[in-house]
Write a protein that binds this DNA or RNA. Structure first.
Lengths: 111, 111
DNA sequence: CAATCATATTGAAACTTTTCGATTTGAAGC
DNA sequence: GCTTCAAATCGAAAAGTTTCAATATGATTG
């Protein structure tokens, strides 16, 4: 944890329903761009842009073969991102919540 | 899976490094808004806006007690979101990759 | 009940994202 | 070597996000 900028880049990429859907489509194997394009109402340049974002954040890998580009998931990045959710659902030491904020002293009792 | 819009809403909320950090801060317990504000160089209205987005997507819950608002993680949403990563890392039946796209017939052999 | 304090809302400026059509690049086929 | 095809890049328009200062709301305190 700590590298919030890198996590945020990945989440930003997933923060578009079409890109989330593309990632899901790639989850059972490699697909070429033209095949992904067939499933969406979207121009070729728009898809290309989405794929670029998915690749840049490390979620997706592109493999060029002649005229075609094949895309697949980068499982390392996905595991790492999944870890974010494990980290935020397990208690930690040295957490910010252990330090007191002056403005809130004594608030906890009003429960 | 399938509810890409709802997932995207959550990922969009996490797709800002400050909001990702706030979520991490909340991971070991409830914090009041003023305490979160102390840890950031950010105006009070900006923080309020970020907290609203985090609440609206269901990641965070707000609890009002007098003047203060306490925020905490909504573990149900977090578990559900974690599931997205489980889903995309396990093979599936009836996947889009099983259907052929005309433009790509025969591409697979060029490996 | 007026003042104070913690948050929320509003409105505006700056910046980023989304999308498209047009153009470019670069491989394959004739 | 020209044509065709798949994908990337460019430039622009529209929409959305981020941030702040100012103001509003509503609870608490004197």
């Amino acid at each position: 944890m700590g590298d919030y900028l890198e996590y945020a880049r990945i989440f930003k990429a997933l923060g578009n329903p079409k890109r989330a859907m593309i990632v899901d489509m790639l989850s059972c194997g490699e697909l070429c761009a033209c095949m992904i394009l067939e499933k969406f109402e979207m121009s070729q340049s728009t898809l290309s842009h989405h794929m670029k974002l998915l690749c840049e954040c490390g979620l997706v890998k592109g493999r060029e073969r002649g005229k075609w580009t094949y895309y697949s998931l980068n499982t390392d990045t996905i595991s790492k991102t999944k870890q974010f959710f494990c980290d935020i659902t397990s208690a930690k030491e040295n957490c910010i919540c252990k330090e007191g904020a002056d403005c809130c002293k004594g608030c906890d009792e009003n429960d």
